[in-house]
C-alpha cells in the first residue's frame, strides 16, 4: 500500500462515521420524502402512485402561493436587518471589559428561550387587549393597534419578534469573526491615520466577509423555515396573511393528513433553500481567488 492510498483510507476512516450518520438522518429521509411526494399518501401508511401530480398541484395552489409570498416577505424583513444589527452590535461589543461581556451575555440571552416563551412575551407586548403597546397608546389617548389581526401588520409583527429572538447567534458569529482579524493590520491603519469609516470599509468588512456570508446563508435558510412564531402568535391568520410555507406543510400533513402533497411542498422548499444558498455563495465568492 503506497502512502497516498494509506492517507486516503485514513481520511475516509475519519469522515466515515459522520457520513454514515449523515446519510441515515439526512440523505435517506430526503430520498424517502421524494418517493412519498410522488404518491397520494396519508399519514397512516396508505399510498397511491400519482407521479408528479402533487408538484403540479402545488404550482397552482393559491394558498401555497400566499404562504410563499409571506415567507419571502418575512425573510426579507428579517435577514438584512438582522445581519446589519448583529454587525453593529458585534462592532460595539468587540472590546475587552466586564461591561461589554455582560452586554454580550444579555444580547445572547434571548436565544436560549424557547419559541413558546418568546411568543408568549411578544403576545403580551402586541395584543390589542391590555398589551404593553396598547396600554402605552391608551395612556396617550390613542387607539390600540391590532398587530396580530391586521393583515398588513402581522408579518412585520412576526419579523420583529424573530429579530428580537434571533439576534444573539449572529452577534456571536460576527464577534468570533472580528476577533480573528489580526491586530497588526489595525495598527498599520492607525499609523496611516486611517479614520474609523475607512478602517471599517477597507479592513474589517473585507476581513469578516465570509463570516457575514455565513450569517446571511444560515439566516436565510432558517427564516425560510419559520414556523413556531407564526403558529403560536397568529395561527397563520388572519385569513392566511401570516401563514408560512412550513406552517402550511404542518397543516397539510398533520391537519389534513395529506402526506404526499405535504412532502412535495417540503421538497420544493428544500430545492428553493438550496438554490438560494448556492446563489448567495456564488455572489459573494465569485471574485475571490480560489483557495490553495
Amino acid at each position: 500500500m503506497n502512502a497516498a492510498l494509506r492517507d486516503r483510507l485514513v481520511g475516509y476512516a475519519f469522515v466515515g462515521p459522520f457520513l454514515l450518520v449523515y446519510a441515515a438522518v439526512m440523505v435517506v429521509p430526503l430520498i424517502m420524502g421524494l418517493v412519498i411526494s410522488l404518491h397520494r399518501a396519508d399519514l397512516f401508511g396508505r399510498r397511491e402512485w400519482v407521479g408528479l401530480a402533487n408538484y403540479s398541484e402545488a404550482l397552482g395552489d393559491p394558498v401555497l402561493h400566499q404562504a410563499l409570498g409571506n415567507t419571502a416577505m418575512l425573510a426579507l424583513l428579517i435577514v438584512p436587518p438582522l445581519t446589519g444589527l448583529a454587525l453593529l452590535l458585534a462592532l460595539a461589543l468587540n472590546r475587552p471589559g466586564r461591561f461589554a461581556a455582560v452586554l454580550r451575555g444579555v444580547f445572547f440571552s434571548s436565544l436560549v428561550l424557547s419559541v413558546t416563551i418568546v411568543t408568549l412575551i411578544w403576545r403580551f407586548i402586541l395584543t390589542p387587549d391590555a398589551g404593553l403597546i396598547a396600554e402605552g397608546l391608551a395612556a396617550t389617548g390613542r387607539a390600540p393597534i391590532p398587530f396580530l389581526s391586521d393583515p398588513d401588520l402581522v408579518i412585520p409583527a412576526i419579523a420583529v419578534t424573530t429579530l428580537w429572538w434571533s439576534l444573539g447567534f449572529p452577534v456571536m458569529l460576527i464577534l468570533a469573526g472580528l476577533q480573528q482579524v489580526p491586530g497588526d493590520i489595525y495598527e498599520a491603519a492607525a499609523l496611516d491615520v486611517a479614520n474609523r469609516w475607512t478602517v471599517l470599509r477597507r479592513i474589517t468588512l473585507p476581513a469578516i466577509r465570509r463570516t457575514l456570508l455565513l450569517v446571511v446563508m444560515l439566516q436565510t435558510a432558517a427564516q425560510l423555515q419559520l414556523f413556531g412564531q407564526a403558529q403560536l402568535l397568529t395561527g397563520g391568520g388572519p385569513g392566511g396573511a401570516s401563514r408560512t410555507i412550513v406552517l402550511y406543510i404542518f397543516e397539510v400533513s398533520f391537519g389534513r393528513w395529506e402526506l404526499g402533497y405535504a412532502t412535495a411542498i417540503a421538497e420544493l422548499l428544500f430545492g428553493m433553500i438550496l438554490a438560494l444558498t448556492l446563489v448567495q455563495y456564488w455572489l459573494v465568492t465569485r471574485h475571490e481567488e480560489p483557495r490553495a
Binding site: 389581526s149 393583515p151 397563520g236 391568520g237 388572519p238 385569513g239 392566511g240 396573511a241
Partner: peptide
C-alpha cells in the same frame, strides 16, 4: 379561515 377573512372585510 375564509369566514374570518370575509367577516372582517379582508
Amino acid at each position: 379561515e375564509e369566514l374570518e377573512a370575509a367577516i372582517t372585510g379582508a
